[in-house]
Nucleic acid binder design. Structure first.
Lengths: 140, 140
DNA sequence: TGTTAATAGTTTGATATGAAACTCTATTGC
DNA sequence: GCAATAGAGTTTCATATCAAACTATTAACA
């Protein structure tokens, strides 16, 4: 029976991780943001400007959701939208100066989440875990 | 870097599992239900009547969310609410006949999800996976 | 080259979700 | 016994999310 509970466990972990991230962002003075917003900002920090479709592909949410999320980030001032000169259907989303300023906090928060969740988990166990999750992710 | 992506992977897997469950429920003629509703029904099938607070504890959602979810299940007719005679603060939620009739479909769907997601994963790997996820879940 | 199909985003409407304030009941401490 | 506190649910409000229909632009192809 026990090994049937992976999906259940995964749901719980995600829920708790989200709660953790929300709390930490708030503690760093980043308020009013959901984890999805953080995820978008994180990817922009790592990869530079991205089109809406690219963001959607990465965070795996409906494109209308991306529109809403990015609009909020624009409203707050963390992000700006530019027309792609080569293809005017495309909007490129880029961090503003205010958005870039969040990077140090984000790195700290990500590190803290990792430290918490992996407490007592060995390096090769993490490796195993990622490989198994990768396989399941590919199966679905 | 790769082993830092567990939370990311978990999010994707949960998203896909939810999509899978929604599709399967629809295919079985169970329409208009979100995975959370299915989760509640599944627990009622397994454990019998539960108080709202118990449901909340199991599926780890806010009590106001539980109220909304259960109300919908009542409206559709899968579930009914009874006062606990011993403690009138408590509402006991129980499956109706119509709700119980869903059980065979639910078992099939759960089995299909497991078969899909675990394709190519050995039994002892599943064991390992659950143990590691358990640890992370406890850490958070 | 002009029509059709594909792609990028947005809008609209519905729903799940959470937070905070509130009601009602039970329990606890004096 | 009675006041204060805790517990179970609900209501209200705000927001993330998805699906479907829509607009606008580019690509395909005949």
């Amino acid at each position: 029976m026990k090994k049937d509970h992976i999906i259940f466990l995964i749901g719980r972990i995600q829920y708790k991780a989200n709660r953790f991230l929300s709390q930490e962002m708030k503690a760093h003075g980043i308020k009013g943001l959901a984890p999805s917003h953080g995820e978008i900002l994180g990817y922009l920090m790592a990869r530079g400007p991205l089109p809406m479709s690219g963001i959607g592909r990465i965070i795996d949410k409906d494109k209308s959701t991306i529109t809403a999320l990015v609009n909020k980030l624009i409203r707050i001032g963390y992000v700006e939208k530019k027309r792609d000169p080569a293809d005017s259907r495309i909007s490129l989303i880029a961090l503003t100066r205010k958005g870039m300023a969040l990077k140090p906090s984000f790195l700290l928060i990500a590190q803290k989440l990792r430290a918490h969740s992996y407490k007592g988990v060995l390096d090769d166990e993490r490796e195993t875990l990622v490989n198994l999750l990768d396989k399941i992710n590919a199966n679905l």
